[in-house]
Amino acid sequence: MHKVISYLDEVSILSHLLPLSAICFLPGRTLNNTYKALALLITVSFLSDLICRVLRYYRYSNLFVINVYTLLEFLIILLIFYLQWNSPKYKQRFLMVGTSYIFVFLLLSTSIYGFFKINSAASAIAALLILGLSIIYFFELISDISTPSLLNNPFFWINLAFLIYFSGVLFVFIFSDIILDSNIDKSVKNLWKINYLLYSASSILFTVSIIKWKKIKL
């Protein structure tokens, strides 16, 4: 078990390949804009994880990359929800949330944390906002009778992935400035593995969603 936990980092990186392979190689329907945005999110996440890994190997700080990824991840997920709702009346609200988040992120980075320290507040705010969007989407699904079974709705699985991932890592993000501190005890450092574990689970759920979208029966 201990060995498995020690390899979670690698498992998490490799798990990106699962949905990316489904996008590239599975036959079926072509991707819509929501799924194109999801593909972008997975690619950005994959590249960021790879860069972080390389930087860590050469003993450079990778916190700047994590910070940039936090910002990009939030904006891409916001875009995914916007494209999924596909309603002009939400455009203004999404733009407002996106702009406000960028402003808050930059403010926190410049005034409190700096760009080369982990911005735990920005990560926690992003997680909370995405959790809110996921819950709203789920409660909107209650009155949607166009798909009799929720499990057959492809976006249900993406939303579920966001919900599970961000609820599980919320407390990890809140304490991320402590957890990723180089002088901290290894038992605390290991908490970051929750992030890897839940991201791997999300990758599986993304893959299910892509397969559902491409109408391939499991």
Binding site: S167, L170, F171, I174, F175, I179, V188, L191, I194
Partner: peptide, 17 residues
Amino acid sequence: KDKTIVLIVLAGAVTML
């Protein structure tokens, strides 16, 4: 302090899930 942090994070993650 480290133990407390571990406990809070784990309890938080479990509660959220």
